[in-house]
Design a protein around this nucleic acid. Structure first.
Lengths: 215, 215
DNA sequence: CAAAAACTTGACGTATTGGTCAGGATATGA
DNA sequence: TCATATCCTGACCAATACGTCAAGTTTTTG
């Protein structure tokens, strides 16, 4: 579980090599984990994809789990950032549109991170810490309150904020996690900029035009 | 890949034992695969969950992949059945509402099948046959045409049918695949009948009330 | 220019995996 | 009852997995 940390690294004069190699490992790992899950991904595969010998991977990360949990931490940051668009000071149309935009852009440019997280959720989030779950819960609750505020102010129609958020999350996520299903549906080989733009337009059309009072 | 089939079974006087054991194996397997993916699931785990010795599992299924592909076949049938609600002879409100209902009910009662399929999609659908992909494509295209028909008839607002379908699929799927995220969002331990009903109501509210002309 | 710290790596060790197999148990049917 | 087809299973095997380690090389630092 824990294992000993790579080195003490008290002086840390120059961490560039470390940073670069860790980045390479994490980048390879997130792609592999996102496709084959925790158990399905072999450390030797990560090593090969990172162009490092396997033993070198173990110099930077004590265990496979250490790589995995580091990635969870990173992905959760992205989750937070996107949600920050939903801010009480903004107008609903502006804020929700920005959120949809941010999430779809993330789905397009960071598809493997998105799939990685989806994979972890399918597992039931067993690798997430209590603290991380609590954080997710709190940050979601905050956004629910923002939407409730908008509803109170008559800026949005009366709708269940939880399910509303879930709907946004599910739909935007879909284009990353199940991009091949989306591609099949759209009769394209792969999703391109045009498809993401159409997705955005349709989503905004359906969601915003119905949930905001002034059409 | 292929392996030899369990037995020739030409006479087949009584297949009840075979059927019962295969069912037990498949039931255990779909739950395990849905959580840990193909590589993450061990045949010994499937055997233990099925209360059979491992060698007996191999009597019924030649390889792990054989179990997996059988499950894909089964899940795709469910996919078809739900989509049949979207039928040109029905009124959009009725049909779409029935589809949402069917999908959410499936998410509630067959969560592991749903997660299993999600897992396979995350992998990029590598275990699906060309034929199966083609079938998915065709059946989706049919439903797109139905919606296009409704739009032509003025029964629905002008909206991209592909992205509209994706939205429905993504949202309903979410409650099965990421039920724990949904639970966190809803501040419940687990999703119950009440949550599914609220999900249905919210979805219908957002989707139908905006996409059908007469409010 | 040493000495120390940081980094690299081929060669293991132990545990587990998917899958095999030979031989036995059980059921069917004439 | 006996022959045949079906069903069951403990023991086994080769391959491979994660993780270790000792013996390096390279870089930093005093």
């Amino acid at each position: 579980m824990t294992g000993k940390q790579p080195p003490p690294s008290q002086p840390k004069p120059d961490e560039r090599i470390r940073d670069r190699n860790e980045a390479k490992i994490l980048k390879s790992a997130v792609e592999l984990f996102s496709r084959k899950g925790f158990d399905g991904t072999r450390i030797s595969e990560i090593a090969k994809a990172s162009e490092l010998p396997k033993a070198n991977v173990y110099y930077y990360f004590a265990t496979k789990e250490a790589i995995y949990t580091r990635l969870i931490e990173r992905v959760l940051v992205g989750w937070d950032i996107a949600l920050e668009h939903i801010h009480p000071d903004r107008e609903p149309r502006d804020a929700l549109s920005a959120y949809i935009d941010a999430k779809l852009t993330y789905s397009k440019n960071h598809a493997s991170e998105s799939r990685f997280f989806a994979n972890e959720m399918l597992r039931g989030g067993q690798f997430m810490s209590r603290k991380q779950i609590r954080h997710m819960k709190e940050i979601t609750r905050e956004r629910v309150r923002v939407i409730e505020g908008w509803i109170e102010d008559g800026k949005m129609v009366r709708i269940d904020p939880h399910h509303f958020l879930i709907m946004l999350w599910a739909t935007t996520q879909f284009y990353a996690d199940f991009s091949n299903v989306a591609a099949v549906s759209l009769e394209k080989k792969r999703l391109g900029a045009a498809e993401f733009e159409a997705a955005r337009a349709t989503l905004v059309e359906i969601v915003l035009n119905n949930c905001l009072p002034t059409k």
